[in-house]
């Protein structure tokens, strides 16, 4: 399938607020993105021409934002709605190898639905991890540097050169990835063995560093992970905000080239065009 035929479902509910820029990233690369309200997939309050089915799409995106306000644990309400009405569709989507991308709130939603890290199977019955409140206890919007540590499993990072340090900004209050205390060590080892860790927060030298380079206190500085098959991927930083160079925070110092986030979307479309 050509990338230009790839239909991308940019899924939203009230409070999802990064859908426009996520939509634009795929559109700029020639794919066919569509902003779809969850009710269009579940068939609630919609007319027949508004009705959509998840299986019509090759790629699913859960954009950033504050879905349903995130007044309880971030992403929990969107995840509950997904699980109650679309569990089977989602599992099927992932099972056939279609890529799923969760950015920021989308990552939180994927963890809450059990699609990440999905240590065994496609979708865990209860969340296996949590994106907890930042160590600073507040929302922070700041530039973050990410090192790709994935060895090739994740379909969203194939276009990023090994060891490249990418500038992809963060903006969240709950981005500290944590695992059950008694199993944390085991889970981390498992993630690494399975090549499920994709990005880590680093300093300008590429070394693991503390705050503010790691904006939230995340376990092992992890910024993004994928499932075992590599087709479901979530990250806290926002690649859609640095599609172009001129939205990098320091772009006036080196204005040439693409934005560092662009490769994430290109990788996904590469995968779609090769595998489907």
């Amino acid at each position: 399938m050509k990338a230009s035929d790839a239909r991308v479902c940019v899924l939203r509910i009230e409070g999802t607020n990064c859908e426009e820029e996520s939509f634009q990233c795929f559109k700029r690369l020639g794919a066919k993105p569509e902003k779809v309200h969850l009710k269009q997939l579940t068939g609630t309050d919609v007319s027949s021409d508004e009705r959509r089915s998840l299986s019509d799409y090759q790629l699913l995106v859960l954009p950033g934002g504050f879905s349903a306000g995130d007044y309880v644990r971030a992403g929990a309400i969107f995840a509950a709605r997904l699980r109650s009405r679309l569990s089977e569709d989602l599992k099927e989507f992932v099972r056939v190898g279609k890529p799923v991308l969760g950015i920021c709130n989308g990552f939180q939603i994927l963890v809450e639905t059990g699609l990440l890290p999905a240590m065994s199977g496609i979708m865990a019955d209860v969340p296996e991890a949590v994106l907890g409140t930042n160590d600073s206890a507040r929302f922070e919007c700041r530039p973050t540097l990410l090192k790709k540590v994935n060895r090739g499993n994740c379909v969203f990072s194939t276009r990023i050169p090994d060891d490249k340090i990418s500038l992809i900004p963060s903006a969240h209050a709950e981005g500290k990835l944590m695992f059950p205390v008694d199993r944390a060590k085991y889970v981390i080892k498992e993630l690494e063995d399975n090549d499920q860790v994709v990005f880590k927060y680093v300093d300008p030298d590429g070394s693991i560093a503390g705050y503010p380079w790691c904006p939230n206190g995340s376990t092992e500085n992890i910024a993004g992970i994928c499932n075992r098959e590599g087709n479901v991927f979530g990250m806290m930083p926002h690649p859609e905000r640095v599609f172009f160079r001129f939205t990098h925070p320091d772009w006036t110092r080196s204005p040439d080239g693409d934005g560092d986030g662009r490769a994430v979307f290109e990788s996904a479309l590469d995968y779609v065009s090769k595998k489907m």
Binding site: E20, G64, L167, P169, A171, H238, E240, P249
Partner: peptide, 23 residues
């Protein structure tokens, strides 16, 4: 103050309120 506000959602902010070299 400024870092508590999201100043680049919508991905259209070309010059941000805080400016300088990274870090």
């Amino acid at each position: 103050v400024i870092r508590q506000y999201d100043h680049e959602v919508r991905a259209n902010t070309i010059l941000k309120p805080l400016q300088g070299k990274i870090g």
